[in-house]
């Protein structure tokens, strides 16, 4: 069983959980994800892995309660179990394959947005454990929703930015990246993980700056093992499946506009389900269509 051994609320609606999942914990590497189902009739929800410990068999996940199923997950408490947890899925980050000596010479800047901070932490920790120091920009709308700050600081040179300037650099992650470069920092690789719109703008900027950029894509998925094809993306003019070819891709080749459009596919149905669950029988739009 996939028992929750720790639950924390990191920010409003953002949760961290430690879960017993020994097979995943034993084989996970940075960059990979897992799929979880809250209960027996739950949706299959793909989540990136925040941390793992092969010895204790514990996997750490961080998620934001947005849809009906993530809200259900948020209701689970320490001691409760997820019905299913499968992984690790997808390919590990290619950083894991670069010889350590070369890796130590690389100047990498990570960019983390929102709950994308969790998978970035996973990579930073792995790099730190292997003696690789990197910069990291962590962005959020405002100070209150910055998550895992101490943990991130412990494993990287952390630069925080907020849109409203309530903490750190004022401005979004692109502003922060330009500022770091203007201050004389040089990067030969950027790894950006966060909302698609953030990754799109980071890629536009790094293309101009001619810095290789890796992004982690989180499209709609069903099985997550290369069977259904729901997670397909156009990368460099070719169809790629995020679940088996990714989730990490060369950000300069990803067609973000199309990927963002495809995310809207089930928006109406998802919203309807969420409203039905939150408001129960009291939810009637009055138009007769819901």
């Amino acid at each position: 069983m996939f028992r929750i051994v720790k639950k924390e609320v990191l920010a409003p609606n953002i949760y961290l959980m430690d879960v017993e999942a020994p097979r995943i914990a034993k084989h996970a590497l940075p960059g990979q994800f897992l799929i979880v189902r809250a209960d027996d009739d739950g949706e299959r929800i793909p989540l990136t892995i925040c941390d793992y410990d092969a010895e204790s068999g514990i996997v750490q996940i961080v998620f934001q309660a947005i849809g009906a199923d993530t809200h259900r997950m948020a209701k689970l408490e320490t001691g409760d179990c997820f019905a299913d947890m499968v992984g690790p899925l997808g390919r590990p980050s290619d950083l894991c394959e670069i010889p350590l000596e070369d890796l130590k010479k690389m100047k990498i800047c990570f960019i983390a947005g929102g709950v994308g901070t969790a998978p970035v932490y996973c990579q930073l920790k792995w790099l730190k454990n292997n003696g690789v120091n990197v910069d990291c920009i962590q962005g959020a709308r405002t100070k209150d929703i910055i998550i895992l700050e101490d943990e991130m600081r412990a494993v990287s040179d952390l630069h925080i930015c907020t849109d409203d300037g309530s903490y750190g650099i004022k401005g979004n992650v692109c502003v922060a990246l330009e500022q770091l470069i203007n201050e004389g920092k040089q990067f030969d690789r950027v790894v950006a993980i966060g909302p698609m719109i953030m990754m799109k703008f980071v890629c536009q900027l790094t293309k101009k700056l001619d810095i290789e950029t890796i992004v982690s894509m989180n499209p709609i998925m069903v099985d997550g093992t290369g069977m259904c094809g729901a997670c397909r993306l156009m990368v460099g003019g070719q169809v790629k499946f995020a679940c088996v070819d990714g989730p990490e891709f060369d950000g300069h080749l990803v067609d973000f506009d199309q990927a963002m459009q495809r995310m809207k596919l089930y928006k109406n149905e998802e919203t309807r389900l969420l409203l039905r669950e939150q408001e129960g029988e009291s939810h009637h739009g009055g138009c007769g269509n819901c």
Binding site: V222, D223, G226, M227, C228, G229, A230, R232, M234, V239, F241, V244, D255, Q258, Q261, R262, K264, L265
Partner: peptide, 25 residues
């Protein structure tokens, strides 16, 4: 394994599914 597509224009539009996805859902 992975579903095949035709590689024709417009295949990424919303409302294009593999039979595997449609049936799995």
């Amino acid at each position: 394994g992975l579903p095949r597509f035709m590689n024709i224009p417009g295949e990424q539009a919303m409302g294009v599914f593999s039979a595997n996805e449609y049936l799995t859902r």
